[in-house]
Nucleic acid binder design. Structure first.
Lengths: 152, 152
DNA sequence: TTAATTCCCACTTATTCAATAGGATTATAG
DNA sequence: CTATAATCCTATTGAATAAGTGGGAATTAA
């Protein structure tokens, strides 16, 4: 009886892949740069698409790039210093379910009288509460077998 | 520094309008059927679009329709019996952020080893926890002035 | 000097969102 | 009985977005 599924309330591949990328860098870190080609192979994601995702992580200082042969990317911090929320917000933008709540709320004609704004605000808080309290270190812990891929 | 905003994690107009529609029916209920034209005027939503949204609410038995002149729609239950989650799930489908968690999870190659599935599952739980614990009666309470519109 | 890599930007294809449009059916009021 | 007001049903549309592909320039290690 449920409606046919749309893309409502869904995370995009950009955000999911960014997380898998960061988790891959954390998992296979040796101190040497890791190339996107390696990440792409392990994660079964197009390397060209990863190339499009990583600049925002790079510009934000979440990773450091090393150009040229044997180059690649490295995390700049300890895995425990990255929350899932940081990474998602960078690649997906605001996680709020509507534009009138969240980081840069768009005000509407009747915000103080709007019962639904309260709903969206609570949803926003609940989502952020989750993603801001999980770090890459937690994800490393939750992986039972580091050699497998994470297909989500 | 945030990414340009997409539609990630957003509720669609369908779900938002369905909530406003149901809340309008609750707010202006007199026992007589309320026409979509009236709802559309009050909520400033296209009546033709509302016409497209209401069949699922009707088929699910959330509203009752009265055809012909002076016809319209009526809630079939007490406002306290409708949760925001019921209404959203009917019009938006599953609220899970990815397809591998939620009502009808699509299994993937490596679900038990997937650290990210745990993240999505927690997000899903958090969202549902909010929307399943707010009823139309709560929304009625939260409205300070019943004569205004709810523009969200 | 070659090969491997990041970097940058344009392009594409399919899907989805958010409506609009037209008309058939049903019932009420006069 | 007839005009009108409403639900019902299905098709179409235009714009935006998602999710990638493609080409090539710049940089660096071996």
């Amino acid at each position: 009886m449920t409606a046919e599924v749309g893309r409502y309330m869904k995370i995009s591949t950009k955000g999911r892949y960014a997380l898998r990328l960061m988790l891959d860098l954390a998992t296979y870190n040796t101190g040497e740069p890791i190339s996107l080609k390696d990440v792409a192979r392990r994660q079964q994601i197009s390397d060209k698409y990863l190339e499009q995702i990583i600049p925002s992580l790079n510009k934000a200082g979440y990773v450091r790039s090393v150009r040229g042969a044997q180059g690649g990317y490295l995390l700049t911090r300890d895995p425990g210093e990255y929350t899932v929320g940081m990474i998602l917000r960078l690649t997906e933008g605001d996680l709020a379910p509507v534009n009138c709540v969240g980081e840069n709320p768009v005000s509407c004609d009747n915000s103080e009288n709007c019962a639904l704004a309260k709903v969206w605000s609570r949803v926003n808080d609940a989502v952020n509460q989750v993603v801001d309290n999980i770090t890459l270190a937690d994800l490393l812990d939750w992986q039972t077998d580091y050699t497998n891929q994470y297909m989500i």
